[in-house]
Amino acid sequence: MWAITGIIVVTAAIAMFEVPSLWKKKWIKELGVFSILLLFGTGLSIAISLRVNIPNPLEWITFVYKPLSEALFGLLNSWGGE
């Protein structure tokens, strides 16, 4: 509970720091991107503090490169005489 309160306070502080200057300059697109990313970050932080399982991006990268990696290491090791 305290973690969630802390996350929301930090988010509010960042928003208070950033939003007024953007609003004054009428940078609506920047404000939109900023808000989406900030909300995404806050949501994920709360999910972590509630110990929700978040999908691991490194596993996706591993999934993409795994066949290539196995082939390559087979090649390198066969050259090395193993």
Binding site: I14, F17, E18, L22, W27, E30, L31, V33, F34, L37, L38, F40, G41, T42, L44, S45, I48, I54, N56, P57, L58
Partner: peptide
Amino acid sequence: PLTFPLGILSIIYAIVSV
């Protein structure tokens, strides 16, 4: 404007991915 949100996301990425 992107620095703070992307900073939060980087920290989350560092925690979640490893």
